Computed example of a mutant assay.
Amino acid sequence: MPDTFLNHTPTKKAHTLTIVADSNIASLSDFFNAHNLAGAAETVEIITCAGREITADFLANIQPDVLLVRSVTPVNETLLADNNSVRFVGSATIGTDHIDQAYLKARGIAFANAAGCSKHSVAQYVLTAAFTLRPEYWHDAPTLGIIGLGNIGSTLALYAKDLGWQVLGYDPLLPVSDVNNSTLDEVLQSSSIISLHVPLTSAQQSDYPTEHLIDAEALAKMHKDTLLINSARGAVIAEADLLADIAKTERQVVLDVFEHEPTIAAQTSDALSIATMHIAGYTLEGKLRGTQMIYDALCQTLGLPIVQRIEPLLPANPYHWAALKDAPQLLPEFYDIMQDDAALRAVVTEGQVQGKDFDGLRRNYPLRREWAFAAF
């Protein structure tokens, strides 16, 4: 192992690789153990805690070599300025807006995320929400508008095409294609369903900022019957504008992410057709795939062979996309999204969902299964 990777403090045990990890990352010990990281250190110490508890002071007391996070932990100069030990950061998430990649690069800290790990999980969440609210779409094909055609958006398009739906896609960062075929206005004005799959960016970060992309002006362009689904980032939608629009149009809206999460005002959840607790990607397959990806990246950083795979960790899967298409009435068995909606609404107290309760639901979420697919 290169000497540049580990920078031990005098109190750290020799030949120990210390990992601080969000406790919500799946199967940590199955991947990050001395056997699977043989050659990096004699022993591996994994210290887990809630992602929001990973602070600068916490890391200063531990001086870890490796930091593994999810989306609730901002990794930036504030977190790491006083820390000289971290040499690898892995985020078991598709999104990276919580990571200051420029800062990590300047510090020489290796970084990897889990791009695409839950693309099928999230696409299946969107389909479940749509079919739950509008079961007629099993036989009356709607027009699906997709804003953002990265890993998730493009996967959702594959499912929609497999169902015979018309797809209108918009992604200004990608070349025109059979899916990336529309302007933003065309998607807003002509879709029966609009699903958001963009990162959260500001005007300072991008020529095509997504913060409050869906505001009063955008909402006014949608037909009042257009179903809006957001499983990307909460602040892509201006919440105040959304609530005003719902009050006016009675639009059906599904949110898995919220502008002010982990706190959610009861006024917001009450207005929604389906509200869930940022769990669109929370399947067993998606979680394990995310852990696999950051484990693989750490092995590559350390020059180690990859010896652990997710397949031995997955039990048999009874849920198959082809079977669901043949028997749509099985949808609640595949994924009963209204159970998640009810769980979130059950923790509303004093006019809001408290942050600790929102995080608790996510931390203790019983991972569902992805629907196995053969066609794509």
Results as ranks from 00 to 15, higher is better:
residue 257 V to R: 09
residue 196 L to C: 10
residue 199 P to N: 05
residue 204 Q to R: 01
residue 264 I to A: 04
residue 233 R to P: 13
residue 309 R to Q: 15
residue 235 A to C: 00
residue 246 I to D: 01
residue 294 I to T: 06
residue 304 L to A: 09
residue 226 T to E: 04
residue 219 L to M: 10
residue 281 G to L: 12
residue 208 Y to H: 15
residue 286 G to M: 03
residue 279 I to N: 04
residue 235 A to S: 13
residue 264 I to G: 02
residue 280 A to E: 09
residue 231 S to I: 11
residue 315 P to N: 08
residue 297 A to H: 04
residue 281 G to S: 07
residue 269 S to K: 02
residue 245 D to I: 07
residue 313 L to V: 07
residue 196 L to A: 06
residue 267 Q to R: 14
residue 208 Y to R: 01
residue 288 L to E: 00
residue 203 A to R: 14
residue 271 A to D: 06
residue 283 T to S: 15
residue 308 Q to R: 15
residue 204 Q to P: 00
residue 302 L to C: 05
residue 263 T to D: 13
residue 258 F to R: 03
residue 299 C to Y: 11
residue 286 G to Y: 05
residue 308 Q to D: 02
residue 200 L to D: 02
residue 204 Q to I: 00
residue 230 N to E: 12
residue 309 R to I: 02
residue 260 H to Q: 14
residue 195 S to P: 00
residue 300 Q to T: 14
residue 284 L to T: 09
residue 219 L to N: 03
residue 265 A to P: 00
residue 230 N to Q: 11
residue 240 A to R: 12
residue 215 D to C: 05
residue 214 I to T: 07
residue 193 I to S: 01
residue 308 Q to W: 09
residue 212 H to R: 10
residue 255 L to F: 11
residue 279 I to T: 15
residue 313 L to T: 03
residue 252 Q to C: 06
residue 229 I to S: 04
residue 249 T to A: 13
residue 290 G to K: 03
residue 217 E to H: 14
residue 299 C to M: 04
residue 304 L to E: 13
residue 288 L to M: 03
residue 233 R to Y: 04
residue 286 G to L: 02
residue 229 I to T: 03
residue 234 G to M: 09
residue 229 I to V: 13
residue 283 T to C: 04
residue 213 L to N: 07
residue 229 I to D: 01
residue 307 V to Q: 08
residue 311 E to A: 15
residue 202 S to F: 10
residue 251 R to H: 10
residue 200 L to G: 08
residue 248 K to S: 15
residue 298 L to H: 00
residue 275 A to R: 02
residue 194 I to R: 10
residue 215 D to G: 05
residue 212 H to I: 04
residue 222 M to C: 08
residue 273 S to Y: 09
residue 293 M to I: 09
residue 244 A to M: 09
residue 211 E to N: 05
residue 260 H to Y: 15
residue 305 P to R: 05
residue 280 A to Y: 12
residue 200 L to E: 02
residue 207 D to R: 10
residue 283 T to H: 02
residue 218 A to G: 12
residue 251 R to Y: 11
residue 274 I to Y: 07
residue 216 A to R: 06
residue 220 A to L: 14
residue 279 I to M: 10
residue 232 A to T: 13
residue 299 C to F: 09
residue 252 Q to E: 13
residue 310 I to S: 07
residue 215 D to I: 01
residue 277 M to A: 15
residue 283 T to K: 11
residue 281 G to P: 07
residue 250 E to P: 00
residue 214 I to L: 03
residue 195 S to Q: 05
residue 195 S to F: 07
residue 261 E to H: 12
residue 317 N to C: 12
residue 284 L to Y: 08
residue 273 S to C: 06
residue 272 L to T: 09
residue 202 S to M: 03
residue 298 L to R: 00
residue 288 L to P: 03
residue 296 D to T: 14
residue 290 G to H: 05
residue 199 P to K: 08
residue 291 T to W: 02
residue 192 S to N: 15
residue 275 A to V: 11
residue 282 Y to E: 10
residue 215 D to V: 02
residue 293 M to D: 03
residue 212 H to Q: 04
residue 276 T to Q: 05
residue 256 D to S: 07
residue 254 V to D: 00
residue 272 L to F: 11
residue 221 K to H: 10
residue 225 D to K: 11
